[in-house]
Design a protein around this nucleic acid. Structure first.
Lengths: 187, 187
DNA sequence: ATTACTATTAGGACCTAGTCATAAAACGGA
DNA sequence: TCCGTTTTATGACTAGGTCCTAATAGTAAT
């Protein structure tokens, strides 16, 4: 008996975790026990009732959509911006940025941070990346903080603005990119 | 009177749209009418009750988290993959990929498609981008379909695997990238 | 076998945030 | 004043619970 209860409760916790939209009644029939047992189980494991669970999931969704919009313009947080001269942004590497297998940040996130900063630093209606050379000098791990510094370096032979972005973790260079930017005044 | 009702209902629709976590009671006090009036309003505008609204939001969140995980590994949809040889993926450019100002896709999304495809084509535990040269040959617009083709081109002088990715819209080249990939067998 | 204890089940009162139906009251315009 | 719309009130009922009390089942030790 001691085992049965513990086992059931452990299964219950997992089941509710990945199927939160389930009533006590359904759980009761699924485990072949009474509703009251399920409710005791939830009480002991302090699992909130269905409606609260649904609300929690919805709340999370809401928070995300609210903050997702402003965040998209520039990847990372801009902490300094001098138009047509330089800019700095910070990106904290979290679970969503890394390969689950080895906790190393996917390259395209570092690229995105640098490239969007290069776009932002240009004081023009339209700024598009024409081409770029980039180097990933060392892997970036989960929870590291990447500081990207962009400098406008002048124009190339095709009249494109050159922006160089160096990204650091501490004082180690992790990424370098030279972006040749097309801008609307080029036409 | 005719105006009052219509006005209230229009405000109600908007209010619930961006504040779905609100009870009829709160709405009633907010509009200075009785709960029954609010309920009639919801009935006429066929707005579901609070609990249903919460459930809808939660359901959306759930659908997204479920599909977000597998989708994140490779940006775009892989339609062909021969390990250590070649791969093809498709990315349909939607609102979330473009600058709202000019409907042109942000460069980092094209980079992400290409780079993650370059990672995927390598038949190894660990594959990281060491450096790359890339060109954006023409802007990609909203609703265009980008087809990325990756080919493994051999190894460079530092024993890094070279993957070239060409991305097309129709038969126009829109992006080219040469990725030098570090892989675990390199150690 | 009896006792002790845990685990399970049952029941009833109460809660929130509603639905649905019916009826009464208030208001505005001709 | 009467008509039609709008608003409010009331009551019965619902889902999916909480909280509390009490009875029953199952197991282990004395």
């Amino acid at each position: 008996m001691k085992r049965k209860k513990k086992e059931r409760q452990e299964q219950l916790v997992k089941l509710i975790e990945d199927t939160p939209f389930i009533t006590d009644e359904d759980l009761a029939t699924k485990f072949g026990v009474s509703i009251q047992t399920i409710r005791l189980d939830r009480l002991e494991r302090s699992i909130p009732e269905l409606r609260e669970r649904i609300k929690d999931v919805a709340q999370k969704q809401w928070d995300e959509t609210v903050k997702a919009l402003p965040l998209e313009e520039v990847i990372g947080e801009v902490i300094n911006l001098e138009l047509d001269h330089s800019a700095i942004s910070i990106l904290d590497i979290s679970e969503e940025h890394v390969f689950s297998r080895n906790q190393i940040a996917r390259g395209h996130h570092l690229f995105a941070q640098a490239n969007s900063l290069a776009v932002a630093v240009i004081d023009d209606e339209l700024a598009l990346t024409a081409n770029s050379e980039i180097r990933f000098t060392r892997p970036v791990k989960l929870h590291e903080r990447v500081i990207a510094k962009a400098y406008v370096k002048g124009v190339d032979d095709k009249e494109r603005t050159i922006v160089e972005v160096s990204s650091y973790v501490g004082n180690e260079l992790v990424f370098f990119g030279r972006f040749h930017m097309f801008r609307s005044t080029d036409e």
